[in-house]
Simulated assay, not measured.
Amino acid sequence: MTATVPAPAAPDLATLQRRAAQRAAERAGGHDRLRGHIVCDGLVRIFKTDGVEVVALQGLDLVIDRGELVAIVGASGSGKSTLLNILSGLDAPTAGIARVAEYDLLAMSARRRLSYRRRMAGFVWQQTGRNLLPYLTALENVELPMRLAGRRSRRGRRERARELLDLVGVGHCADRRPAQLSGGEQQRCAVAVAVANDPEVLFADEPTGELDEATGAEVFAALRQINAELGVTVVVVTHDHAVATQVRRTVAIRDGRTASEVRRTARIGADGSTELVSEEYAVLDRAGRMQLPESFVDALALRDRVRLTLEPDHVEVRPGDRADAERSDA
């Protein structure tokens, strides 16, 4: 009788995060260069159309460390896609600071911007059809960026392409064209294409937006694998709250500013098991301003003014009308 060997358990989020940090340190040449891989300070983007100005980003602050996997969430029109387009080099900011590694995204020439997009940043679009050329196989699609950049020999490109397809779980699709792939397989191939030139940062704009929940989970698992094994910093813009809970850090954007963050830390229980504990933080800008989470505002019906009281170890926030009523009663 042949014994069945159980499949190895998938690594948990904490393990993947540790692995990603280690790979990122190796890429950076040491632990002292881990912080501030992506920095935005007072970032502003104004669009002008027919004499009308629309402020998409109004003083946004954000710091993402090297090797992090971060989800950026927000309602339509909040500015999250504008931010992603600026960081990926597809759009130019109006004012403020936007820096990725040594690249100043406000001061780049057209030539340096092109070099940045080719060598520094990988990008995955929401629409599966935009990520792959339909007349090339999956393997040829992954080889193409390396070929255009003049990297590796023909044999080296093919070997690297197969490694990347295997890494994202679609090695069996190497000889198929996009029309022969499912939506999830296309997006995982797109992830392999995006990191073919070994970029430092991978940006993904709603990569699971056109997929069902199960298929979306497979695509996001591919992003986590790339982050863990290659040490690539990954920034994902998403509406999918199920995806947002699969990362150690989620940044919420509201009205063109960073509003809050959820950080998930690994804690070891009494029985030795590891669990992720989530904590939500409001983001305080340089002027001392912050946005309260919408759920808090709605729960307490906060409107117009609020009453602030400084306590020894915290600040108390109460509805202004309630505070005024209590004072009148006294």
Rank of each mutant, 00 (worst) to 15 (best):
L148N: 03
Q246G: 09
T265N: 01
C173A: 13
G150Q: 02
Q291I: 14
V251A: 07
E326L: 15
A25N: 05
T309H: 15
R327G: 13
L211C: 12
L284A: 10
V315S: 10
E311N: 15
M1H: 02
R257D: 04
S153V: 04
R27L: 07
A174G: 07
G320N: 07
V201H: 11
G269N: 05
G30A: 01
A222V: 01
G171E: 04
R157K: 11
G183K: 06
R303V: 12
A222C: 02
F203Y: 14
L211I: 09
E200P: 05
E261A: 10
D50G: 11
D41S: 10
G79A: 10
I38Y: 01
A92G: 13
H239W: 02
A24T: 07
E200N: 15
A174F: 02
T215Q: 07
S278N: 02
E206A: 12
D321K: 13
G183L: 03
G272L: 00
E163W: 06
A190G: 03
Q58W: 05
L133D: 10
L106W: 03
Y103G: 06
L308I: 14
G36N: 05
P293W: 06
I268W: 00
L230Q: 04
G169E: 03
Y116W: 06
V283Y: 08
G79P: 07
T274M: 00
P145K: 12
F47D: 11
V44K: 01
N197W: 08
F47W: 11
R152C: 10
V201W: 06
L69P: 07
L211S: 11
M108K: 07
Q58F: 03
R264V: 00
E140C: 03
E206N: 12
Q187T: 11
R119E: 13
D255W: 06
D12C: 07
L90Y: 11
V297W: 03
H37P: 00
P178G: 05
V262D: 03
G231N: 03
L284E: 09
V73D: 03
G122H: 05
R224V: 04
R19K: 13
A214H: 12
G96P: 14
G150F: 04
A28P: 00
R267D: 00
H37T: 01
T94R: 10
Y135S: 14
D65L: 08
D175V: 06
G79C: 09
R117H: 10
A194L: 08
R113L: 14
G256S: 05
R286T: 14
M1N: 04
I72L: 10
L310Q: 14
V277R: 10
D255E: 14
R257N: 08
E218D: 13
G256K: 05
A110R: 12
E159Y: 00
R118D: 01
A107T: 05
L69N: 06
Q127F: 05
D285K: 11
G51Y: 07
V315E: 11
G29T: 06
G96V: 15
V195W: 04
D12I: 03
I64W: 05
R152T: 09
T238P: 04
A138P: 12
G129Q: 14
V63C: 15
L87Q: 07
A21P: 02
I64T: 10
D50R: 13
D313T: 15
